[in-house]
């Protein structure tokens, strides 16, 4: 028995030393034009991009905004601060790729709680299906402080997130390795291009990840107890076959939740007026022409105005 324990400890200790060494090398040694971790460690393919640019903008300027947007790429590509500025609303877009309620909650607690009284939460059905590990890993890599990175790992203790944290802590000289060339300002990115064809959804069955609904509810309740005003929004999507079935399934789970929480929801998922192929960059994102139309719609929408402009 003693021999089993002794040798097991030896192997584990040696494994820890090798792991630490490998993480250090992967985080700092360049292979061709990027860090080695980007080749080998699963889901550590990005450091930088919109997440890092957004965090820099957010932390370098202590301004208080009229409203802050949270959500996935639909958020950071769908709410243009320049359009809101013209209407007298200062807006910061804190959306990140595939951001889920876990990531939003950490960003809110660590950076955003005192930066606005109004929160626009962009709602995109698939985010409530995913585990969101990849998105959280990107945030762990790119949030401004280690405290926020630890909070994100605490939300989701997995080997992947621990690896992301280890790479973050071991990286001596972080530089933006994948700058998003579409980045404009205050977290917003322009999505270029025009949708060339509407294809049916591959999978029109909504498969809920219950944990996401639970964390989403926790986040709303926390924002409400902090006295924040909240508005939920979904922008229009191309009228793809299967979309209605999919979104209806999502709504059957989502609507009772938001009714219980008493949060307004502006759902334009099926809204087709003005939204044709020319307003979309791909099957799920608006292009700049679509963003213009969508943001103007919101600014003239009574529910939105009541929530955002007191």
């Amino acid at each position: 028995m003693k021999l089993i324990v002794r040798n097991s400890l030896k192997v584990l200790l040696a494994a820890c030393v090798i792991y630490a060494g490998a993480i250090f090398i992967f985080s700092n040694v360049q292979l061709i034009d990027r860090r080695m971790s980007l080749f080998f460690v699963p889901n550590l393919q990005r450091n930088g991009g919109q997440e890092l640019q957004m965090m820099r903008d957010l932390t370098s300027n202590p301004t208080k905004y009229d409203a802050i947007v949270l959500g996935s790429s639909h958020a950071y590509r769908g709410y243009d601060p320049r359009i809101f500025e013209q209407a007298g609303v200062s807006l910061f877009n804190a959306g990140t790729s595939a951001q889920n309620a876990k990531g939003s909650l950490v960003l809110y607690n660590e950076y955003l709680r005192d930066r606005a009284d109004v929160f626009i939460l962009d709602v995109y059905d698939p985010v409530f299906e995913l585990e969101g590990t990849e998105s959280n890993m990107r945030l762990i890599q790119n949030v401004a402080t280690n405290a926020a990175a630890f909070a994100l790992v605490k939300q989701e203790v997995k080997m992947y997130t621990l690896n992301a944290l280890a790479v973050r802590l071991a990286s001596l000289n972080v530089k933006d390795e994948a700058p998003n060339t579409d980045y404009i300002k205050n977290g917003f990115c322009e999505k270029k291009g025009i949708l060339y064809a509407v294809e049916p959804l591959n999978d029109s069955v909504f498969d809920a990840n219950e944990e996401m609904f639970v964390v989403f509810e926790t986040m709303i309740k926390q924002m409400q107890s902090d006295g924040k005003r909240i508005v939920l929004c979904s922008h229009a999507l191309p009228a793809s076959p299967g979309l209605r079935n999919y979104h209806e399934k999502f709504l059957s789970r989502f609507t009772p939740l938001i009714e219980r929480l008493g949060v307004p929801y502006i759902d334009l998922t099926y809204y087709t007026e003005g939204f044709g192929v020319n307003e979309f960059a791909d099957l799920s994102h608006l292009n700049q022409q679509g963003v213009e139309l969508y943001n103007q719609f919101l600014l003239h929408n009574t529910t939105f105005r009541e929530a955002v402009i007191p």
Binding site: N7, K10, V11, L12, L13, A14, A15, C16, V17, I18, Y19, A22, I23, F26, F40, V41, P42, E131, T133, K158, M159, Y160, L162, N163
Partner: peptide, 19 residues
Amino acid sequence: KVWLFAVLLACLALFGQWG
């Protein structure tokens, strides 16, 4: 052998797909 299996364990942590 200790080092060999330590390397394999470290690889599990680093490269493993635990989904």
